[in-house]
Design a protein around this nucleic acid. Structure first.
Length: 538
DNA sequence: ACTGGGGGCGCC
DNA sequence: AAAGGGCGCCCCCAGT
């Protein structure tokens, strides 16, 4: 493994060093311009080992992530993004198979110790692929920022795993015990769940496993209620004594299975929750996680996220991010004026008439969500009409994205992240003659591209925010980014620095807006709460 | 015994 | 007329 320090010299010379970790540490300990942008194949594979050795790097260029972005832009999705594959493609040679299947190419693989093995990266390939990527990046406005932000994200992801989210196992355990009863031994249900299961069977007058939707459907049918699914919102409409028990069972059962004691045993060590974040794991640019369900932590468990003594959590989320992104993207003057306000939905409310069950603000929110997600049943049809009339450019922007999708075309985020092309199956389903083509497949693709432009640009914004914030936090010293969930961040900081962290977050949010959209009236408020427990925010 | 699709639901 | 974006994780259950 031979990362290349790209310090501006056109042809870098290869230098052998006795210890790569030490060599990187030494360069990073220098000041200002002496610190390079490290060009390497993958932060996910290489950076954790550096962090364990106590070395942080300021900047990098992650060749694999950038290769994914570039090939996606060219409409080639899912092809191998390894340096060797990129090298072969640029020379028109046969693309070698990945050495390791994607599933094994995780960050646990270490490349520092076996530079002589076949894992060794060829520095000539790295130089050439990097140069080629630079050329491709320069052709697309915004892509330089996207590549830099994605690469910064790859550093942040590894650093967040390294730092871990402060997690109180005892608070978590107490919460579970309070809600479920004492921790059961073996594979038994906790007492509270078993009680509910017994009562559910009693209410139906027959044995019913509440974990089995099929059994619930049958039991309800026997009781005279025909349902197709047993989702909570369907059950809520049914007047049967088993229903409240089932709803309570579902909620507690989910807590137990997804974030119960076994989760605690598996994921929390030494007061830290360390999920593995997957940068670029979602096509829209959102992150995914591998194991731990880090992006689906139930709100109730936020009381287990507790700062260390003398430290605080600075919790901040972007308010109404996606509609603001739409406003900035669409350049709709009237809509952007509303998005210049602290409460965008309230600012739109005067376009809507309140009804018995919905305020004008509720209606504005519903109309916007429908426009961005492709919904629009019942009431929303009329609300969408209002949106179309009052904010034609904003409405037209998402409509155009939907139409592009329905025609099989690609759409992109502000910075150029591109949606995957439709599958061969989709082309087959939608390209046949009028009688047999699948209208639902066409519409489904339209909903996807309609949402993509907004969700992916929101991800552009969030990633840019994170990159800027990371730089500001480095200047402050001790504060650690410890959590990132789409439009929300948590920083763990010595309490005396908390105000400065808050200011850094707000400044970074403003800066992200400027970097993406330039001079726009749209604001991106991101107000931070300084708390000891996550649950105390908001 | 294992696997993969589907149901259901947590988060945004 | 109806039409609801993106994920990860658990369990069930049918197929092998």
């Amino acid at each position: 493994m031979q990362p290349l320090a790209d310090d501006g010299t056109p042809a870098a010379e290869a230098v052998s060093v006795p210890s790569l970790v030490s060599a990187i540490a030494e360069r990073e300990s220098q000041t200002g311009d002496e610190r390079p942008r490290w060009v390497w194949s993958s932060s996910a594979r290489l950076y954790p080992e550096l962090l364990r050795a106590g070395v942080r790097v300021e900047r990098c260029h992650d060749l694999e992530l950038v290769e994914s972005l570039l090939s996606g832009y060219d409409g080639r999705y899912g092809e191998s993004r390894s340096v060797a594959a990129a090298w072969a493609r640029m020379r028109g040679e046969p693309v070698p198979a990945d050495r390791r299947p994607a599933a094994e190419a995780g960050p646990q693989a270490s490349l520092f110790d076996d530079a002589e093995e076949d894992e060794a990266e060829d520095i000539a390939q790295i130089v050439a692929v990097h140069a080629e990527q630079q050329k491709r990046i320069a052709r697309v406005p915004g892509f330089a920022l996207l590549a830099a932000a994605e690469s910064a994200g790859s550093l942040i992801a590894a650093e967040m795993t390294h730092a871990g989210l402060p997690w109180s196992a005892s608070a978590h355990d107490e919460l579970l015990t309070g809600m479920l009863g004492p921790r059961p031994s073996g594979g038994l249900r906790p007492r509270k769940l078993q009680d509910l299961a017994d009562k559910i069977s009693a209410a139906f007058g027959r044995h019913v496993n509440p974990d089995s939707p099929a059994q619930i459907v049958k039991a309800l049918s026997a009781a005279g209620y025909q349902v197709k699914t047993t989702r909570a919102y369907v059950l809520k409409e049914i007047d049967h004594p088993a229903v409240p028990l089932l709803l309570e069972y579902k909620e507690l059962s989910r807590l137990h299975t997804a974030h119960g004691w076994s989760w605690l045993d598996t994921w929390v060590k030494d007061g830290r929750f360390r999920p593995e974040y997957i940068v670029g794991g979602v096509v829209s640019g959102r992150w995914a996680t591998n194991g731990g369900g880090a992006l689906q932590i139930p709100r109730i468990l936020r009381s287990a996220v507790v700062a260390d003594e003398g430290w605080s959590l600075v919790v901040a989320d972007a308010a109404q991010l996606e509609p603001r992104v739409l406003a900035a993207l669409a350049g709709d003057r009237a809509f952007a004026d509303a998005a210049a306000q602290g409460d965008l939905y309230a600012a739109l409310a005067d376009a809507f008439t309140p009804s018995a069950d919905l305020t004008a603000r509720d209606k504005a929110k519903l109309a916007l969500l429908s426009a961005m997600y492709g919904g629009g049943t019942g009431d929303a049809v009329q609300l969408l009409g209002v949106l179309k009339k009052r904010f034609p450019d904003a409405f037209g922007f998402v409509e155009a994205a939907a139409q592009a999708g329905e025609r099989g075309r690609l759409v992109r985020s502000r910075l150029g992240r591109t949606c995957p092309p439709p599958s061969a199956d989709w082309r087959e389903l939608t390209s046949t003659d009028e009688d047999t083509r699948s209208a639902s497949a066409v519409r489904s693709r339209g909903r996807f591209t309609r949402n993509f432009v907004v969700q992916a640009t929101a991800a552009d914004w969030a990633l840019t925010l994170m990159a800027r914030l990371r730089q500001r936090l480095t200047a402050l010293g001790d504060p650690d980014l410890v959590f990132f969930q789409h439009d929300e961040v948590i920083v763990h900081t010595p309490t005396p620095l908390a105000d400065e962290v808050s200011a850094a977050i707000e400044a970074s949010a403003k800066e992200a807006g400027r970097l993406l959209f330039g001079d726009t009236p749209v604001v991106f408020p991101m107000e931070a709460a300084i708390v000891h427990r996550y649950s105390d925010a908001k």
